[in-house]
């Protein structure tokens, strides 16, 4: 195997899969809204890393994957802004961001 470790697609794919797995574990395991939001950001990062790896190694036009990653970053920033303002509104009403206590619709 002559290609160095940083020039192999599989390494990046495995790293992205690991990041996705950690993010999903945190999304299920966390008990506060902010913790779930942080885990969601990890999942976004995994998707971005996959796009970057494929645009570097297999895409005929490498600019496409990079533009898509830029769009993912912009939408993640918008999502964080909206999500955090909702979390703060929820905290003002309930005095808590624990997911277990936000159960008014739980009939």
């Amino acid at each position: 195997m002559n290609t160095p470790i940083y020039d192999r697609l599989e390494i990046y794919l495995v790293a992205a899969a690991l990041l996705l797995a950690i993010g999903i574990y945190g999304l299920i395991r966390r008990r506060t809204l902010i913790g779930m939001l942080i885990s969601g950001e990890l999942i976004f990062s995994a998707a971005s890393l996959n796009f970057m790896a494929f645009s570097r190694f297999t895409a005929p036009d490498p600019a496409v994957g990079r533009i898509f990653v830029l769009f993912i970053m912009g939408l993640a920033a918008a999502e964080v802004a909206i999500g955090l303002s909702i979390i703060i509104a929820v905290y003002r009403n309930y005095r808590s961001v624990k997911t277990r206590e936000l159960s008014d619709l739980n009939g």
């Binding site: 794919l13 495995v14 992205a16 899969a17 690991l18 996705l20 797995a21 950690i22 999903i24 574990y25 299920i28 395991r29």
Partner: peptide, 12 residues
Amino acid sequence: ALAAAVAIFWSL
């Protein structure tokens, strides 16, 4: 959660 994460990681 751990099982789901390991399954996703292994299959990917």
